[in-house]
């Protein structure tokens, strides 16, 4: 269960530790989800690693926290950066005994991006993925992508790849602005 983080309490430590940084009690899993929901994706900082569905599972194995991650693209240069950011966030909250593990199957899909994440992408100027990932992409079927600036559906693909592998470059024929589209995979 993903919980939203209470922004009013942003300056309060999310998880209580004593002065030596030792955990006073083992934090509940939902609090850790909330903590990781504050870790931004390095390439699209408006969405968190939880919004993107990169964090697949959190569990306590005795004293150790196990974090299961599924990388987005095979060559995504942000993968290590994300692992470090997650480790930093957890260390900052006093959780030192942790293990990060990668899970490749099932492969990451844009279907895992949360509703909140899609809305944040749109507000940031990136059109969120349309529909769900399927082999239709190969048959050349163009998705109906709405312009994140003006909402017009009169848009055209400029390039299959945008500023990163996960995006395509589009242009809006109504407001004439270019924009990134987060492709379905």
């Amino acid at each position: 269960m993903i919980q939203s983080y209470d922004s009013a309490n942003k300056n309060q430590p999310l998880i209580a530790t004593d002065r030596a940084g030792q955990l006073l009690e083992q934090p509940a899993i939902d609090r850790i989800w909330a903590l990781l929901d504050e870790v931004p994706d390095p390439e699209v900082p408006v969405v968190s690693v939880v919004d993107l569905g990169i964090v697949r599972d959190l569990s306590w194995e005795g004293e150790q926290l196990v974090v299961t991650l599924t990388p987005t693209y095979s060559g995504c240069p942000a993968t290590e950066f994300i692992e470090d950011a997650i480790r930093d966030a957890l260390h900052g909250a006093g959780i030192g005994n942790l293990r990060l593990q990668q899970r490749l199957a099932p492969a990451w899909t844009t279907d895992w991006i949360t509703e909140a994440g899609r809305e944040k992408l749109r507000q940031y100027g990136i059109a969120p993925p349309v529909g769900s990932a399927s082999k239709r992409t190969l048959l050349g079927e163009e998705p109906d992508v709405a312009c994140p600036q003006c909402g017009s559906h009169d848009t055209v693909q400029v390039s299959e790849f945008g500023s990163t592998a996960c995006k395509a470059l589009y242009r809006c024929n109504s407001c004439l602005e270019p924009f990134d589209y987060f492709k379905c995979i």
């Binding site: 693209y73 095979s74 490749l104 199957a105 099932p106 492969a107 990451w108 899909t109 990932a133 082999k135 992409t137 190969l138 050349g140 299959e160 790849f161 592998a165 492709k183 995979i185």
Partner: peptide, 13 residues
């Protein structure tokens, strides 16, 4: 399976 998703876009292009 992971690579296939990426390669689908390579082939399309």
């Amino acid at each position: 399976a992971k690579g296939l998703k990426e390669v689908t876009y390579h082939l399309r292009r």
